[in-house]
Structure formats: structure tokens, C-alpha cells
Amino acid sequence: MKTGVLALQGSFYDHVQSLELIGQDYVLIKDTADLPGVNSLILPGGESTSMIKIQENNDLFSGLKKLIESGIPTLGTCAGLILLAKDVIDGETSLGVLNTVVERNAYGRQNQSFEGLVDLMGNKEMYCFIRAPKILSYEDSVSPIATIENDVVGVIENNIVGLSFHPELTNDNLYLDWLSSFLKDGVNVRSL
């Protein structure tokens, strides 16, 4: 069992740290050649425009998209959520596998970035929102799993989870326990 961590740019080493804490094997993904043997995926935070540009060089995303569509557990945080989303306001649709509409940088610029108390599957924890994308809407096949005040900030659709924030910068036990079972079994989420 090996988790692939997209490593074109961004906070991928922070996700690696989470995986080390739960004893999960991983491989960094920069090229299509890194994909064989991967049976779960993490798409990290960073700049989505930059990641999309870098992968054009080797067309990594077509292989990645096929892999996600094969049903393996896939987690995207912040920029990772933007890569997954079917519709992106003020940005480009890339993988387009999660039936949501997200708006880039919709919580404001860096000066408006914040730590906020998120209800993640019934538990509350402070998480970082950094120039975060907003989930504007989602289709019926998508369920909310995280909220802050009145906003949905995390969703799941089959094998795919997208979060606006950065649990990998907090690495609390709730998140790590969830991550561990999600990467192994896929869907393992209590609804709100």
C-alpha cells in the first residue's frame, strides 16, 4: 500500500510528515513513471496555476486523472481542491473529477488568511486557511464533511475528498486517524 504525493510544487513535505506519523508508505509524484503501484493519492497545497503549468511538460495529469477515476482514495487540500474541482472561478479546471464549483483566493489575500475553528466530521479543531479557495456549490452526489461558520469547507464524493484548508499543518490526532483509515479503505466518513 503506497500513497502517491503530488510533488510538483507546494507543501508536499508537510503531507509526507503526516504519512510518516501514521506509518504509511509513500512516493513523491513528479512524472507519470512514478504512478505505478500507487493506491491512494494526496494533492497538496501550493499554487494551482504553477502546478498546472509544470505538469504540461510531461502531461502528468492525464495519468493522474485516470488513476483517480479508477476509484483510489484521493485527498486534495487547498490548491489540491482546486485541481480536483470541476469548475474553478478565477482559475483553470484541470483534473475536473470532483463535482463542485470553487473560487480561488475567495477568502481574501494573505492579510485575510486565518486560523479558524473547523467542524470536521463532528470534531472541532483550529486549521489554517491560506489564501484559501471557497466551495461555492456542489452537486447532489457530493456531501459536506467540514464547515466553518456557515461555509462548507470540505466535501466528499465517492473516493475523493477536497478540503479548503491545511490539516497537514496541524496534524492533530483526529485528522491523522481519519487519514489513516481513509487511505486504506477509502470512504470512511461520518456525515455531518
Partner: peptide, 13 residues
Amino acid sequence: KIKKGLAEMLKGG
């Protein structure tokens, strides 16, 4: 943490 966090997001870039 938020200030440092943005720098983390720029890594590898």
C-alpha cells in the same frame, strides 16, 4: 503559523 504557512505553500517554486 499563517504567515509561515504561505511560505510553506511557495516551496519548490
